[in-house]
Structure formats: structure tokens, C-alpha cells
Computed example of a mutant assay.
Amino acid sequence: MLLKLENSKVPMQLVYLLSEELKDNPEQIVMTQSLTLDKSRPNMGLKGTNGLFGSKEWWNSIKQGKMPLLHVSGVITRTYVAGQDPSSVDNAFSLLLDDGSEVEESIYNYINYKDKKLFQKGAKVEIIYAYDELKRRNHNGEKAYLDIVLEMAVSLEPVE
């Protein structure tokens, strides 16, 4: 595990591990790897610089620090319904980061129901992202990356 929850000043609950999701949804690995290997789509999918998504090589690149990672920490400022699905259940949140910036993130459908209740205004969230290189370049011709949530934890109680 990359998150060091034992060092947190508030009790945290690990609510998401990509490794667990991929065990439950192996077709996600197959589809992502297929797109990476599809030479007829040179601007779609991951480049595979650090191994094929979900492979042992890919996970080793993360463990060895070859793939860039980002750790974000902040407090939920709001939860809301995102997307076009007419749902009354909040599935996204705004996170005010420790540096003062704000990001939007999803409350994943596969998070345990009791853990979804933790996503409330004032709760602390910690996320580890992997930045995996895309085949396409950005508008400046520079490398582009997909931010992939590897782990997510939420405080057991609001901190604010």
C-alpha cells in the first residue's frame, strides 16, 4: 500500500485500491492493454512506457518509482451528482487541497456502501495517482498523461 494511513493525524478508512478493482474486473485490464497494443489507433490509449496496464511490469514500475506518482490530500467542500445519469445519489466531490487548489473526483461505484457514507462535506481525503503516459501528445506537442487513481482513503469523521 502506498498511502501511509498510520501517519495520519485523523483516523482514515481505505476505500479504494485499484489492485482490488482489477481483480474483480479483469476485463478492464484486457481492454486497456488491447488499446495500447492497437497500432491502428496511434492517438488512443496508453503508450505502455512503463509496461502494459495492470501487468506485473506496470505494477513494478510503480513500486520502483519509474512511473510518476502524485499524492493529494484535502478536505471535501461538496458532494454532487455528476454526469447525465438521472441519479439522486451523489457520485462526485470537490476536494480543496492542502495547497489551496481544488480538484473534482469521483466516488466510485465499486466503493463499499458503508464507505460511501464517509464522503461528506468536511471529510479529509487522501489519493495516490499514477501518471501513465498516453500515446497522444498534448496541444503543445509534449507528452500527455492519464492520472489513474491507485488508492483512496477518507477520514472516519469530518475534520472541519
Rank of each mutant, 00 (worst) to 15 (best):
2 L>I: 08
29 I>W: 00
90 D>Y: 10
118 L>Q: 08
39 K>A: 06
47 K>T: 05
144 A>W: 05
36 T>I: 04
87 S>M: 13
159 V>D: 08
95 L>H: 06
92 A>W: 05
117 K>P: 00
60 N>M: 08
86 P>S: 03
39 K>E: 04
130 A>M: 08
77 T>A: 13
113 Y>N: 01
72 V>L: 11
149 V>I: 10
60 N>I: 00
92 A>M: 04
154 V>T: 07
18 L>G: 04
7 N>F: 00
37 L>K: 15
134 L>S: 02
66 K>V: 08
76 I>Y: 07
23 K>P: 00
160 E>Q: 13
129 Y>L: 03
96 L>M: 12
36 T>G: 07
125 V>R: 01
6 E>F: 03
66 K>L: 09
64 Q>D: 14
121 K>T: 15
156 L>N: 15
97 L>P: 03
127 I>S: 03
78 R>A: 15
53 F>E: 15
46 L>M: 12
78 R>L: 13
85 D>W: 14
79 T>D: 11
158 P>I: 04
61 S>V: 10
55 S>I: 12
40 S>Q: 11
12 M>G: 09
85 D>Y: 15
95 L>V: 04
76 I>D: 06
58 W>R: 03
151 E>H: 04
132 D>W: 01
84 Q>R: 08
53 F>K: 10
138 N>M: 07
10 V>C: 02
52 L>N: 03
140 N>Q: 09
20 E>A: 02
7 N>P: 00
60 N>Y: 06
105 E>Q: 06
127 I>M: 03
85 D>L: 15
153 A>W: 07
58 W>L: 05
134 L>H: 03
100 G>A: 05
58 W>H: 03
67 M>E: 09
64 Q>N: 12
89 V>N: 10
7 N>E: 13
129 Y>P: 00
3 L>E: 12
156 L>G: 15
109 N>E: 12
51 G>Y: 00
67 M>V: 14
142 E>P: 05
129 Y>T: 06
51 G>P: 10
136 R>D: 00
97 L>H: 14
79 T>E: 02
108 Y>E: 14
84 Q>K: 10
152 M>Y: 00
151 E>K: 06
114 K>Q: 05
125 V>Q: 07
52 L>Q: 05
121 K>A: 09
57 E>N: 10
44 M>N: 14
3 L>Q: 14
108 Y>K: 07
101 S>D: 15
60 N>S: 11
